[in-house]
Design a binder for these strands. Structure first.
Lengths: 193, 193, 193, 193
DNA sequence: TCATAAGCGAGACGGTACGTCGTGTCTTACG
DNA sequence: CGTAAGACACGACGTACCGTCTCGCTTATGA
């Protein structure tokens, strides 16, 4: 019940919120620790005591904001599960789009950051998709001899590519086409197409 | 035939080469304009006269190095064309991997740079794939009612995602699986699978 | 009693000392802020936080070094007072000669600097001379109807002119001649010449 | 009668005029060769072919503008000669005041410039004063045993000091006082005062 | 009359210093 | 003790200016 602990937690949240705000406003490159510190009425020492570098701070802010996993949905059919999980992805992209783009770009420059993001963010999101395929196979929806592993990342890959590399908008209809015309036919071997 | 133009060109090339060298050695973040300038026995003014900022310089160096398009291959069959084009992509990734990763990350921060890269680099590479599908359709290899557009970026998307977002190595065998198990079945509706 | 203030003061003194050293070694024109900074094991920001430009820094270094006024001498006779004050001037010229020459030249280019130097340096030195004449008049050494004001700057003017405009050396004997043959005859109306 | 020579001469004058204009507008420090060149619609090579450095150019411009010596006046009396010569000095100060101040300051930084200015400018002006004293002595106006050499520079020294070091205005009345109350009494040993 | 050279405007260039900014460390004083 | 405030060393940035250089163009003499 110590105030200092809760205070510490609360302070941490304030710092991360301020970081996220600044991140949204000016992007990774132009974010300065001074700006964060000034917005949070904090001191640089307070920041650096917790996160040893600017990029740690930013990653922490991102991880904190995306801490809540989208709930795993079980609609009873692969199609519904996929559409649900991918819509969650789209949602998060809408809310953290530019920040994610920023961070994705940072991955190549910062291996530590990369593994944090991959293990802490991407991997957790992927679980929902892996789960969807696993349930479909358990249900017999997918033929037993189909290797689903290559299908896991198909839809996210295309969504990421279009959005982050090609700079295109991706909406629910695009996702539906992707699921119905690409992923499901491969999963079902056209038997249900 | 003017020497001045070629002289200017030559200087530019030297500067871009030096930039690329430094880029390869220390990466985007630790590249300094001073290092480039010193390697090229040039002056900062000479650099900044051409490229208004460090990132412009780096992009120019990348675009210059990847100016030469991989030749379009026509093997007479979609499979061969795809494998060829994707191997070229893999090759280029091997040669410019880290730099590309760096630049990809820059896209989200710099819209101008993004369109330069997209129009000048990605779009040109995509042409080879688009061409491969078009020829296959002309030959009747692909059923007339199959919409090939969603298939263009499928393979590159997966390759980019695995390599740049997931940090995995991608080799020729992975590409072969991708083509044989994902792209071609969709293109041929399993008829030739 | 705050250590921070003294600490700040101390740092300032170190910076100004380093500045003066470099100034002595290479002169105003070839002094670089980087050299100062490197000698003081300081950072450019630390310098520029205090003095907005290189010339401000140099002036501050000069003012700091000449902060200590030469003691006012009272020998009981005008001649002794004058010779004493002028010898002090010569001394200071020997110690800060080139720097003063440098700064003198800066006066015409920088009005703010000019008033700083005039009020903070020249005016304080002149006080000793003014005092000498005042005491002489009080003692009755100088006839009551002699206007001494034109005599105040006579000797310094000649010394400055010879040294800084004509580039000649000026020594104690020159000063003696100046006092005995020019200033005193005018002050005493030749009565005591 | 060659056009090239006259052209060369004319071009030289244009360059020096442009230099003087810029010098008047922004002063020695902020004058840039590029600004001069641009104003004269000339090329840097054209300037540097004639004057090897910026300061040479500026000195040349000054020397060119003050090429015309004030005529030596012979009023038949020392007082008139002195007042005449000093008024000429005041005139020139009015016309080239700031530039002279600038250059004077530069003397301490640039020995070559210093001797050029001293021999080419100051020395020539001093001739008029030296001549005035010589004629007065020849005429018997000044006692034969008076050493006039210390008197030569007395008035100019005071005028320079007041104007350039103290930043005061000096007008004809000041000069008159200087002559009547300082120089002439010393020259005449008060016999004519 | 023409060509060959010399001077020129334009402006790129190497170099050097400037003054600014950001990071991560560290110190001071307060609560 | 943890914190706000902010100074500090380091190092890169992008700008400005100097003095050198190269480029074509124009002009002006000498074959």
């Amino acid at each position: 019940m110590s105030t200092s602990l809760r205070g510490g937690q609360a302070r941490e949240d304030q710092l991360l919120s301020a970081t996220l705000e600044v991140l949204r406003e000016v992007g990774y490159n132009r974010l300065t620790v001074d700006a964060v510190v000034s917005r949070a009425h904090a001191s640089k020492a307070t920041v650096y005591r917790r996160w040893p570098s600017k990029s740690d701070l930013i990653v922490a802010a991102f991880m904190n904001a995306t801490r809540d996993l989208p709930a795993e949905r079980d609609t009873g059919a692969l199609r519904g599960d996929l559409l649900g999980a991918l819509e969650d992805l789209l949602d998060e992209m809408d809310r953290f789009g530019d920040v994610m783009m920023d961070l994705l770009g940072e991955l190549g420059r910062n291996p530590e950051l990369a593994s944090t993001i991959r293990d802490g963010y991407i991997a957790t999101r992927r679980q929902n998709l892996i789960g969807a395929f696993a349930r479909a196979k358990d249900r017999g929806e997918i033929p037993a001899d189909v290797d689903v592993q290559p299908l896991w990342d198909l839809a996210p890959a295309v969504i990421f590519f279009r959005r982050y590399n090609m700079g295109e908008e991706v909406d629910a209809e695009d996702v539906r086409v992707l699921v119905d015309d690409v992923v499901l036919p491969l999963a079902f071997r056209f038997s249900a197409g």
